[in-house]
């Protein structure tokens, strides 16, 4: 039987992979995908905690699942807005390469 630690390690690994994607890839779309991976890693640990800590009534902690539901909703909104921003950015700069987007620097 898998233990809580199994799930948490998977979640941590998933988060680290997402972070690595954000840190190393220079295509802004891939960076965005890395962010999605990180969000889902958090979801996984939330669901795992809810399953491994049932309430007094013997049911899993559904509040955590509601939180995951909210995260998914917000993430969907975030993706829509983020991608719209990327499109607008691409229209202005003709690039999705983050190293070419450095006008904010000193």
């Amino acid at each position: 039987m898998p233990t809580l630690a199994h799930y948490l390690y998977v979640s941590g690994a998933l988060f680290s992979i997402g972070l690595l994607g954000v840190l190393l890839r220079r295509n802004i779309l891939i960076i965005f995908m890395g962010l999605e991976l990180m969000l889902n890693a958090a979801n996984l640990s939330l669901v795992a905690f809810s399953r491994f800590h049932p309430g007094l009534d013997g049911l899993p902690g559904y509040n955590a699942q509601v939180l995951v539901f909210f995260i998914i909703t917000v993430a969907a909104a975030e993706v829509a807005v983020g991608l719209a921003i990327i499109v607008a950015l691409f229209r202005a700069k003709q690039t999705v390469h983050v190293e070419d987007l450095d006008t904010l620097k000193f």
């Binding site: 972070l19 954000v22 840190l23 190393l24 450095d102 006008t103 620097k105 000193f106």
Partner: peptide, 17 residues
């Protein structure tokens, strides 16, 4: 402090991490 503003999003992510 201005010199830390290098304008590269990944560097910011690095500091953030």
């Amino acid at each position: 402090l201005r010199f830390f503003q290098i304008g590269n999003i990944q560097a910011y992510a690095f500091f953030f991490g």
